[in-house]
Nucleic acid binder design. Structure first.
Length: 878
DNA sequence: GCAAGGTC
């Protein structure tokens, strides 16, 4: 047997480094191999992978979408190939002479699969080396030592469960994605995708939109009044009644009833306290952060799911917080909250709060959530303190959130005093039912939502709910949850209160709200769609595929069409059932009750049946998708030919409005150069075109009707700034030879083109085509300063916060072209900006001159450059 | 170029 070192393999570099530190007592030395860290100490070496270093795919002959029928993918072989070549090569090299291999990947299903992938790479180069598996759910001294003292075997069945998922996801996803894309002739970047996770997620969004569309608002009324003690602030109280089931209701669904109640309330001049209830309520501190809870909390601070995760990853990489992708909501046993709080207390920001937590005369027992898993600890600060200056504002805000959440989980519950007061409006002796014509009849006809008894006690009931914070508890350290009080004064039964400020508000029931990103992630988690590491990315993917727009995400017509097509022919791909079934099958494989082949074969069989139906409807599906795609891009009628005006993308990647009748109709309108256009439902009354919003992150703005904008631009007159150097007064030689003289007097003007771009051009265009470019963005200001050489005013550009000086447009253009020539040299490997400038000083302006120069002469003229270097450049420039 | 899952 080989006597080489022992090799430990982890899932990521970060874990490798920390495990090496623990096992070596911080004596491990880091070395680089193929850009990968290898930690080495006393006969052991440790390498971190980067998650999956091999990926599943079809063999190359299936690559061309047009050469392969999507249905062929169902039974196509699925192969594994290295995706991280450097890491795989390093792993093979290290494994070759290893005397023992220990797999120390994450303690979850995917970690087992990643471990098995590493195992297979090891076996390729070393058939005999013993391979062990260690499992730990947090990288702490105790857990790691314990795990390495009791090694186990790889669980090949658990890994096979993961492989079944890979195969099923690939075959269903690829076959159906290609089918939809081909049927709608959407190839290239604009393919139409579906998958086990993105499908049901998209359906959640589309279903919610359908509910909103179908929503029929109902009117109702709410009555309030203000009550007050003789000397005291008024407090709001709301009318309520008991329905037939005896439940309290505030909404009055009938206008006649509301009118009668309003009258009765107006007639009352006071109210008598009928009931007072006091109770204390405990408000428990929040549970530790897992990924979903973190995304939600960051979402309420205004961060998108994607942004929140990216910031948390930065904080993790910098060592300030623990691993941000976790399902766990229970801190590990060996976490020492007191120590951690004390460490964080060294920060000026957290010092006081830390002290108050430690000061309390009690044991700190952190809260626990329902979810306890083996993958990683909940997200918490590591105790390593960043200086506020080390972090961006956003990073700091998220870091503070994580610290305060940790504090909150170690803090006391808050307690509230709840006070409920019910008062009867007085001054109304007559039962209301007798005053209101036909009210009794109304009551009989209405359903259970109507007032059962408006007047049981000879008056209207009003209620007020007050809350007062008795013990702030965790709110002291965690200000992200509301601790607002609602003050209702102490009153006694029988006490008379003044009644004023009566209002009757007419309201309507509201449709359900769209899912925000964090709500969507919560819904996905509830349905087991995706994982902690992928849910936010799935949402991002829906944006990329033009399935949703704006925030909260709204589905496009394309998304509706995809969901409709799937519902009709491939319901599984948009149903959460597919994941539920897969989870069940994976559990069965992991338990040894089913085999990988059995599960994947059954899945392929199901997919075949889906394709039986689908293939016949290829054209219908394709047409429907294409119609929807067009609807997403249609603004309204073309003023020249009546066809549809569509948002289009130029070859350069910029957006513009063009006619569907092209090439017969060449009508176009410009769109702003920043952002991605989103068509709003709002339509321009004059041109019947949908308004356009430009989505550009924080710089998002509403452009409005593109026709109106183009008309406005047309109305702006050219602004003359000087004389044309080519054909203007005193020009050395008029350009055109048709007898025109310099006296024709061409002038230079700032011109605004319909495309939205601007330039300095000659007023005699097209007879004279002298022109100078201007920046695309910003307002152009013509200043009083003048260029003496060219007799033109200096220009100033207003864009962003600070205006900048463009100066004389001719000088500016000369500098620009000079820089361009400099950069031509920079295209040669080894020549940077400074060297290019030096070469230029030596008279070498372009690549051609460089190639024709004598190496020795040139080297003599340029500081720090030898003749061999010049020859080297000349060789590379060829 | 397809999925979903790791990681950066």
């Amino acid at each position: 047997m080989s006597r080489g070192p022992e090799l430990i393999i982890t899932e990521k570099d970060n874990a490798a480094r920390r495990i090496a530190d623990i096992l070596s007592g911080e004596s491990a030395a880091a070395d680089r191999m193929n850009d990968v860290n290898v930690y080495e100490w006393g006969g052991k070496r440790c390498i971190g992978l980067s998650g999956h270093v091999v990926g599943v795919d079809f063999p190359a002959e299936y690559n061309d979408w047009r050469d392969v029928e999507p249905v062929e993918l169902i039974d196509a072989p699925v192969t594994k190939t290295p995706t991280q070549e450097g890491i795989v090569a390093a792993l093979r090299r290290l494994a070759r002479n290893a005397s023992r291999v220990v797999i120390a990947t994450d303690y979850d299903r995917e970690g087992e699969l990643i471990g098995k992938e590493a195992y297979e790479l090891v076996r390729e180069v070393n058939e005999d080396v013993p391979v062990d598996r260690v499992r730990f759910s947090s990288i702490t001294e105790n857990e790691v030592q314990e795990a390495f003292a009791n090694p186990d075997d790889l669980d090949f069945e658990l890994a096979a469960a993961g492989e079944a998922r890979q195969t099923i996801d690939l075959t269903w996803g690829a076959a159906l994605t290609r089918f939809l894309s081909l049927s709608a002739r959407q190839l290239g970047d604009d393919f139409i995708s579906v998958g086990r996770v993105q499908g049901p997620t998209l359906k959640l969004i589309v279903d919610r939109e359908r509910e909103i569309q179908a929503f029929d608002p109902e009117s109702y009324w709410e009555l309030t009044g203000e009550l007050a003690k003789s000397s005291g602030d008024p407090f709001e109280a709301r009318y309520f009644y008991l329905n037939d089931e005896g439940n309290e209701r505030e909404r009055v669904w009938d206008e006649a009833v509301a009118d009668t109640l309003t009258e009765a309330l107006a007639a009352a001049d006071g109210a008598t306290v009928d009931d007072v209830t006091r109770r204390t309520q405990t408000d428990d501190p929040p549970t530790p952060f897992n990924t979903t809870a973190f995304i939600r909390a960051a979402g309420s601070l205004g961060y998108s799911a994607q942004r929140a995760m990216s910031l948390a990853e930065d904080l993790y990489t910098a060592g300030y917080v623990t691993y941000p992708r976790t399902d766990n909501t229970v801190y590990p046993e060996d976490l020492e909250p007191e120590e951690l709080i004390a460490d964080l207390g060294d920060s000026p920001t957290f010092g006081e709060d830390a002290a108050s937590l430690l000061d309390e005369d009690r044991d700190i027992e952190p809260t626990e959530g329902d979810e306890e898993t083996t993958d990683h600890p909940p997200i918490h600060p590591t105790g390593e303190l960043p200086a506020a200056a080390d972090l961006s504002d956003d990073e700091w805000e998220v870091y503070e959130l994580i610290v305060r959440r940790f504090f909150a989980t170690c803090a006391d519950p808050a307690t509230w005093e709840r006070l409920r007061v019910v008062a009867l409006a007085n001054g109304e002796a007559t039962p209301i039912a007798e005053r209101a014509d036909g009210l009794a009849a109304l009551r009989d006809a209405e359903d259970a939502a109507k007032p059962a008894d408006l007047t049981a006690d000879g008056g209207l009931r009003l209620k007020a709910n007050g809350k007062r914070l008795l013990e702030a508890g965790y709110h002291e350290v965690y200000p992200y949850r509301s601790s607002d009080e609602r003050i209702v004064p102490d009153v006694e039964v029988g006490e008379t209160l003044a009644l004023s400020g009566r209002t009757t508000e007419a309201k309507e029931t509201q449709p359900p709200r769209r899912y925000g990103q964090s709500r969507l992630i919560e819904e996905m988690e509830k349905r087991q769609l995706g994982t902690k590491a992928t849910r936010h990315r799935t949402i991002e993917k829906l944006y990329d595929r033009n399935y949703v727009e704006s925030d909260p995400p709204r589905p496009t017509r394309l998304a509706e069409a995809v969901v409709e097509a799937a519902e009709e022919f491939a319901d599984r791909i948009v149903s959460e059932e597919m994941t539920a079934q897969l989870e069940e099958d994976m559990a069965a494989i992991a338990a040894g009750e089913k085999a990988y082949d059995e599960v994947t074969e059954a899945s392929r069989e199901l997919l075949s049946r889906v394709f039986d139906d689908l293939t016949d409807s290829r054209e219908a599906v394709g047409d429907h998708l294409q119609t929807s795609l067009k609807a997403d891009k249609t603004l309204g009628p073309c003023p020249e030919c009546g066809s549809d005006l569509l948002v289009r993308k130029s070859r350069q990647g910029s957006y513009f409005v063009g006619c569907d009748g092209y090439p017969d109709c060449e009508y176009t309108l410009p769109l702003p150069s920043t952002g991605k256009p989103l068509l709003l439902d709002e339509t321009c009354e004059e041109h019947d075109l949908r308004h356009v919003k430009m989505l550009a992150g924080r710089k998002t703005f509403v452009h409005g009707c593109p026709q109106c904008k183009a008309d406005e631009a047309d109305e702006q007159e050219d602004e003359v700034i000087g004389v044309c150097p080519d054909c203007g007064e005193g020009a050395a030689s008029p350009r055109d030879g048709d007898g025109e003289t310099a006296d024709a007097g061409g002038e230079l003007a700032i011109k605004r083109l319909r495309s939205g771009s601007r330039l300095v051009g000659c007023t005699r265009y097209p007879d004279c085509d002298y022109s100078l470019p201007l920046p695309r963005r910003g307002e152009i200001e013509v200043t009083d300063e003048r260029c003496e050489e060219h007799d033109l005013p200096h220009l100033r550009i207003h864009s962003g916060d600070e205006p900048w000086e463009l100066g004389c447009p001719i000088c500016n253009y000369r500098e620009f072209t000079a820089r361009q020539e400099g950069s031509e040299l920079q295209a040669v490997e080894g020549i940077g900006e400074k060297t290019a400038a030096k070469l230029k000083n030596a008279g070498v302006d372009g690549v051609d001159e460089l190639k024709s120069a004598d190496p020795d002469d040139l080297a003599a003229d340029v500081d720090g450059v030898g003749a061999d270097t010049v020859r080297d450049w000349q060789a590379k420039a060829d």
